[in-house]
């Protein structure tokens, strides 16, 4: 059945027993949105910082017919994205793509694609720290109890401290959210600009943390609310510029240093979104 394309790996590197264990964890995570399900992580042929959690979740989801896209900070062409894509090409032989609309599985680090996702897609996040309460409460036994009893006051203490210190909630990444009115979870370090895309998303969203051995998930159409105060409401924000390549005013921008004279420009962080737009503009102009 699942024959690997190259070498002597099982399809998608992991053995079937391990994938079954991961799938059980994923199904449980989908059944309880935002709840962190422990799993027994496997040694992967890459270091932890490279998204071993996401890679294991992707490996458990992939089937031979899949078309995989991998992005890192929105880009398909960074070392991290390229090597994970190559890894799955080699050990699963699946087709790959850089086009969001063509992908069936998208593994991501730190972004949600600009192009709206669809119902038959799976978005797999690489997660460094899955526990949003960790910063305030180092004891695992205590954070588990807090989740179990919905004692989330401490989350707002963190936001309070932000406002007291900076005049506003200074959190720019990994802004904590409440999933379906029950579990507080981290969306992984995506910019807060992406938070609204978490909610009512048609695609399946899976979050894998390798070092911490946790999976959490958002099934399609889950209601996801960013935590805030009445008088300091959550606001998705981005740099107040247009992309200097495609001209988009709606997409999330990276500030790129262009030379050593202090020159800089703002460009889309989502490379597929940007090139699709500029190609359309060129063919339209031609």
């Amino acid at each position: 059945m699942n024959v690997a394309s190259a070498d002597n790996y099982n399809f998608a590197y992991l053995d079937e027993q391990t994938k079954r264990m991961l799938r059980r964890a994923i199904l449980k995570a989908l059944a309880v949105p935002g709840y962190q399900v422990p799993f027994a992580p496997r040694e992967m042929p890459m270091p932890y910082g490279w998204g071993t959690g996401g890679v294991q979740v992707s490996a458990a989801c992939l089937v031979p017919e899949d078309r995989l896209k991998v992005i890192d900070q929105g880009a398909d062409d960074t070392t991290n994205a390229v090597s994970i894509r190559k890894f799955f090409q080699r050990v699963a032989g699946v087709a790959t793509t850089e086009t969001t609309t063509e992908a069936t599985v998208i593994q991501t680090r730190h972004r949600i694609p600009e192009t709206p996702l669809k119902e038959d897609q799976i978005l797999v996040y690489q997660v460094p720290i899955p526990e949003p309460l960790r910063f305030l409460e180092p004891r695992e036994t205590e954070t588990r109890r807090m989740h179990a009893l919905e004692e989330y006051g401490l989350m707002h203490v963190k936001l309070y401290e932000d406002i007291a210190r900076h005049g506003e909630i200074a959190t720019a990444y990994a802004w904590p959210v409440m999933a379906e009115g029950r579990y507080v979870m981290t969306p992984s370090p995506i910019p807060k600009f992406d938070n609204p895309k978490l909610s009512d998303c048609p695609a399946i969203q899976l979050f894998g943390a390798g070092r911490e051995a946790r999976i959490h998930a958002l099934p399609p159409w889950t209601k996801v609310v960013s935590l805030d105060f009445e008088d300091h409401p959550f606001q998705a924000s981005k740099a107040d510029h247009a992309c200097e390549i495609c001209g988009s005013c709606e997409s999330y921008l990276d500030e790129v240093i262009t030379d050593d004279q202090g020159g800089r420009m703002f460009v889309c962080s989502d490379t597929d979104f940007c090139s699709t737009r500029s190609n359309a503009q060129q063919s339209g102009a031609a």
Binding site: L136, G153, H156, V157, Y160, E161, F229, E230, D231
Partner: peptide, 22 residues
């Protein structure tokens, strides 16, 4: 909570019981 401001320390119980107005 030694790592949290005096105001945050006083506010914690309020936020724990649902206060959401900074």
């Amino acid at each position: 909570r030694m790592g949290i401001s005096a105001g945050g320390n006083i506010g914690e119980r309020l936020m724990a019981v649902g206060a959401r107005n900074y």
